[in-house]
Design a protein around this nucleic acid. Sequence first.
DNA 1: AAGTGGTCTAGACCACTCG
DNA 2: GAGTGGTCTAGACCACTTG
Lengths: 254, 254
Amino acid sequence: MSLPTLDRRSVVPLYHQIQQHLLDQIRSGVIKPGEPVPSEQEISTRLRISRMTARQALKSLCDLGIAYSQRGKGTFVSELKLEKNFRQVLSFTAEMRAGGVRPGSQMLSFEVEDATSDVARALRLAPREKVVSLRRVRLAGSMPMGIEWSRLPVRLCPDLIDTFDPTTSLYRVLCERYGIEIVVADEVVEATLADAEESHLLRFPKGHPVFAFTRTSYIQSGQPVEYVKSVYRGDRYKLVNRLTQANRSVVKEN
Amino acid sequence: MSLPTLDRRSVVPLYHQIQQHLLDQIRSGVIKPGEPVPSEQEISTRLRISRMTARQALKSLCDLGIAYSQRGKGTFVSELKLEKNFRQVLSFTAEMRAGGVRPGSQMLSFEVEDATSDVARALRLAPREKVVSLRRVRLAGSMPMGIEWSRLPVRLCPDLIDTFDPTTSLYRVLCERYGIEIVVADEVVEATLADAEESHLLRFPKGHPVFAFTRTSYIQSGQPVEYVKSVYRGDRYKLVNRLTQANRSVVKEN
DNA sequence: AAGTGGTCTAGACCACTCG
DNA sequence: GAGTGGTCTAGACCACTTG
């Protein structure tokens, strides 16, 4: 079983070098689903590192869902497909690119305005605090896919309204210009019918099924930074989710 | 800042005792969102345990999404709401109970049959391998909520067809009788319109919007154990998802 | 300079699985 | 009994943040 040559002077931690090497072995099929990866003992002996470090490498693989450990038996490669499209915090731009389609946008409105009560509650705004409001039709090539209406606290991105090109990626600008990195989002999805305006904008028959999303996005501290209502065509859009087990520690008290 | 009295003779690991105590402090509001939890140093000194064990306790809190660490600053309680209903692998029974509604089922069919090709592919069946097929209307009280059609390899639950009461929880029987514990499921969701049969079974106007789910459920090793196609009323059912950040280590190579 | 989390070491004992 | 992962110890050096 192959193990990497470690670079002890690298800024990359040892456990991460091992994790990446095993990931390569798994992706290239050298270690197949259901088969064991090297044990903690074997890794620590052969690479001359402490067992805790070897353990950390395997733990990080398990955290990715790529392997699982069984006490007394070993650590094995999961047989789960690692499809890329399990829902993550992706901008529309990133989502389209991942699907190999050229993403685009058509701006409907872009202005600073008062927050409605649902927006203020979701973004935890102070009274009378204003938001940047951006409404766009999202395109895949020239095909309208959905309508997105984002609201962000002006406080967090004061000159967005003057500097942002509404046909580009909002998430990239938030990250690069303001250092705002969205790490988690909560979303409610409903199945409804397109109304007259939506049908018109989507060039889509009225009364056909659509997904309606209401999403609030957060940075690591849990502070909300974006509230989005959007509508996507039911004939062009599917959701792909990976549901994981309820965490017993959290559930216990319910 | 309060810390627990550890029971060193308990079968519960020390780091878990600490995690639970901090969880209690957070849930009861003693430590509020945005505030720091005790540092690794403080925990290890005051509880007279090694720093690595204190660290493991805080790490486990972070893995739950309840806290986050910042190098050089500390570990802080996340401001994210910990709503219970983020999508998890829940049986319909568990999902309804969580919502305070009495769940029920009406059986449409329950038999052993040949697998169709989509089922065989999803469950990775051997040629000519048979499945248990269970089709039910799911009820909340007396209100029909959806239609579920489950297929499971007969091999994994050989006498299910003779022993299972189709109005009870399938997941509970799988776990208790066969030791099959579903830990992850992949699901595709579409927004469509109810057809004639669905409308009739759901007592719901034809042509109204519904969610159509296609779900494959897996045990820890990644082996698929259940393939479900279901349809739920769009006027009674919403999805609530928590989307998390794409993992950089995995994404890197894409 | 003091405090924090991130990484790493070289051991230890345990419960579990399997031949 | 040999091998595995789960937990724990008592240190260490580092990079980073803050006053």
